[in-house]
Design a protein around this nucleic acid. Structure first.
Lengths: 154, 154
DNA sequence: TCTGAAAATGGACCTTT
DNA sequence: AAAGGTCCATTTTCAGA
């Protein structure tokens, strides 16, 4: 799908605040509300817009700790890696998981309530997998920035 | 603010899909649409819900590379760290930034179109700062998971 | 919890390029 | 055809009784 300047402007706006009315969006980008509606609908169905979600404050739910874990695997056999990916995907405390090139293999960003919960999770995710050679834990002292905004300019 | 089981159910739902109507949400959690409206409004104003945003597919906008950078600083003076934080915050390609305890100091997750763009960004963000001792780059080969969902159960 | 007004969405239809 | 605009019906939101 190819996108024009109107689409870019809309993507920028809805990534910042998806509650803005189509009327209001239209006024900003110089388009009728109906045209905005059509474009958003299309970008949704084409998968440019993956979805619309509420962002929740982790602290309000007791998740005061962000932990970053670098995981090194024992064996890079595809079926073993897939099994690990599945386990990470299924774990709600894993917010993000990247499979990376280089010395470590997986990088996880986890949200936990306290260190005990993290310890428990390491047991389930790392020790029981039998394919983790070692892992390194980094604890976040401050979440300077945490968003999924995709730049539309530049 | 304290939250009950209804709030939890609502937070779970709107984090997955914020386009669901309050009517529909009410049916799922056994509450009238008006009650759902009041609760969501309250959680928004109290900051439990930080906002509602559209999630965009980075690839659709040409961002095919996710790069993770571990930054080690030269000097931990607060004003210097704040200046760095500000630079990271202001850079749209930096999706996430954590200030961490341990051997490295900042962990960044960046979205770039290609390696040239990354090289350019390292110049702006690291070399020009004069406070970066060294940095290590990890390239993501697959984004196994990438969301900001906060678990409501467990 | 119910009711109702105001707002928002999304389709139909016509016009322009 | 493809995309915009206007109009209109339906749905949704949200406040007051």
């Amino acid at each position: 799908m190819d996108l024009d300047a109107f689409d870019y402007a809309l993507l920028d706006a809805v990534q910042r605040d998806a509650t803005t009315s189509q009327q209001n969006l239209g006024e900003r980008v110089n388009l009728s509300a109906a045209a905005v509606n059509r474009r958003l609908k299309k970008m949704n169905s084409e998968g440019v817009i993956l979805g619309t979600v509420a962002r929740v404050d982790p602290v309000a739910l007791g998740y005061t700790l962000t932990v970053i874990t670098e995981v090194e695997v024992e064996n890079e056999r595809l079926d073993l890696l897939d099994e690990m990916k599945r386990a990470f995907l299924a774990c709600p405390q894993v917010q993000q998981c990247y499979y990376v090139a280089g010395e470590c293999d997986f990088l996880l960003i986890m949200l936990v309530k306290n260190m005990e919960q993290y310890t428990q999770l390491t047991r389930e995710l790392f020790f029981e997998s039998n394919n983790v050679k070692r892992f390194k834990t980094l604890v976040s002292m401050s979440n300077v920035k945490s968003e999924l905004y995709v730049p539309v300019l530049a």
